[in-house]
Simulated scan of single mutants.
Amino acid sequence: MANIIGSPSRYVQGKGELGNLCTHAERLGKAFFVLVSGSGKKRVEAQLTHSAQQAGAKLAYEIFNGECCQSEIDRVLAAFKASGCDVVVGIGGGKIHDTAKAVAHYADVPVVIVPTIASTDAPCSALSVIYTDEGVFDRYLFLPANPNLVLVDTDVVSAAPARLLVSGMGDALATYFEARACQASGATNCVGGKVTLAAMQLARLCYETLLADGLKAKLAVQRKACTKAVENIIEANTYLSGVGFESGGLAGAHAIHNGLTAIPETHSLYHGEKVAFGTLVQLVLENADLDELEQVMDFCLEVGLPITLEDLGIRDASEEQLMEVAKLACAENDTLHNMPFPVTPETVYAAILGADQLGRYYREV
């Protein structure tokens, strides 16, 4: 099997770039169907209108209903077909991105992804995570191509709440450890090949950037400041993690996240916050070196990522509830089986308890 790396056709990051969106995307089409939240539209409409006037482009808006589920994809697809547009643009967070990518795939048109937050690594990937209407993980939709353009306006992203940037760090935290596991097991990555040297280096650089700039970026964003550390973390959360996870592969951390969606209390948490705890569970499964565990724990404590079940809103969970999480994480088609050793619901259940207890210990010392 070949080594394969996937990435968006073009990645643009900089201050004020939202106002240049239509110019950057003019090679893709002239009529842009913009999927965005109601509040998001109010924040970006003036810049997009200016951009469309500059490029002589048409804009049509569709308000996102809040969940990347099949019914929402079908609804938005119908609206796109009725709009007369030729490009899908997803502006917002991960669920909007995944919905926009799925709609563009089914309509067979280009897609532009514009994150207004750096809370996940979804923007660059050829993947949509599909949930049920109730918000429980359903399946991965693997797409034939990455987005045609990813545009990140760092002024917009740095103005978002700091918790969202930290959530993106939680998602990015898993990138290196999952890629490492997939390389060790020889697992197939998300683009249908084996991990490349480039993908592993991107994944490693992602982790190193988090350790170097994560706290500085969080503190700066708390003051709505876009410093060099913020720029670096936005790139780590969005591009390094996006290309790194897709071309490196997914393993334990994201499967644990998927399992946690079975507990309603976790639905109020962001994707990356649950992935961060999933990373700790994966490291316990691997019986990772204590120094490495301490480094990850210290990072999570420093920036404010969950390290215990209680941090996830799970208090006094029953054995049956946590075993349900473990069973869902071990689903036949999920990525936990990319680990370089056999996994069972029983070993995952034990790792969840072990990670929770380690988190409690490190929170007290």
Rank of each mutant, 00 (worst) to 15 (best):
T238S: 11
N189H: 09
V230E: 12
A262Q: 15
A60R: 11
G359Q: 01
N287I: 00
V136S: 12
A181H: 05
G56D: 13
A31L: 05
K327T: 13
L197V: 15
Y361S: 11
D133M: 07
Y239P: 01
V284L: 09
R10T: 14
I113D: 04
L149P: 04
F64D: 08
V365T: 12
A217M: 05
E265A: 15
R10H: 10
T335I: 06
S71C: 11
L164C: 01
T227D: 13
V281C: 03
A181V: 07
A251W: 00
T188D: 09
E72W: 01
V112F: 08
G19S: 14
L28R: 09
N333T: 04
V103Y: 09
L164M: 15
Q222V: 04
E45G: 00
A262D: 11
L353N: 04
G252H: 01
A255Q: 02
G214A: 07
A276Y: 05
H50F: 10
V136Y: 11
R10D: 13
E310C: 12
G19K: 11
P147D: 04
L165M: 15
K228F: 12
L219R: 15
A225F: 10
K327E: 14
L358F: 10
A326L: 04
V109T: 08
A162G: 06
V150W: 11
S39T: 15
V112C: 08
N146Y: 05
A172G: 13
P8E: 08
R363E: 10
L322G: 02
G193V: 10
E310H: 13
F245Q: 09
E45M: 04
G170C: 02
N287E: 15
A212Q: 14
E286W: 00
G242N: 07
V136Q: 13
G244Y: 02
C69L: 03
V365I: 14
I73R: 02
E208C: 07
V284R: 00
G313S: 08
A118V: 10
R43F: 14
L165R: 07
G93V: 03
A220D: 12
T196D: 12
L127F: 05
G193S: 10
K327L: 11
G94Y: 00
N338Y: 02
